[in-house]
Amino acid sequence: MKVAVLKFPGSNCDQDALFSLRDDLGVGAEYVWHEEHSLAGFDAVFVPGGFSYGDYLRCGAMASRAPVMDAVKKFAAEGRPVIGACNGFQILCEAGLLPGALLLNAAQRFICRDVFLKAENHASMWTQGVDKVLRIPIAHGEGRYVIDAETLKKIEGSGQIAFRYVTAEGQRSAEANPNGSTDDIAGVLNEGGNVLGLMPHPERATKELLGSTDGFAILNGLRLVVANL
């Protein structure tokens, strides 16, 4: 299997993603430049973090209108796996592939530390392997997930809330929510469950040396999915 790791001007977690997928997870991975129009030959898409287009206008706004995103939309509509972490999450929201949007952290500061995550959906390709609280790093200034009350109700009912910020013990609390996200939401799925966006970086948690290998619980979904295609 081969994962397309997208590259936009200003992406900076593309290498983390490629090395994590290829060296740690053991799947094929290649960079795909944002001006490409096709994802032919790829089985999954990883939209990496960074500061695409300098975060100008809104985080992910310009990147979400890049030619490659038309291909990603088609790819996602076919039910194939797409994951976006950090700026990748912002891009997927801006592209309309995921509900909601990301705003400046409530505490204004850029936050770079580990968080704990609890899977709220155990049926999707991305969350089915998550059977414990995960410790995964975040590194963002604009990660406050917002969504209107009506849509929140809808995605809650349809199981589209993938992850919530929790304490190490798995409890929801104001202190466990690093950025003021609505309802402690850290990651969401599309209706089909094949597109996942999250602010934490699973690709930075696939090596003991880096402090956690909990990222595998999410990225392993790639292998399961492709085996079932």
């Binding site: 206008l57 809104r58 706004a61 310009m62 929201c93 909601g100 949007a101 917002v146 969504i147 209107d148």
Partner: peptide
């Protein structure tokens, strides 16, 4: 509608 504003926020 296409770029300058995000209707969600």
């Amino acid at each position: 509608d296409k770029l300058l504003a995000n209707p969600v926020i």
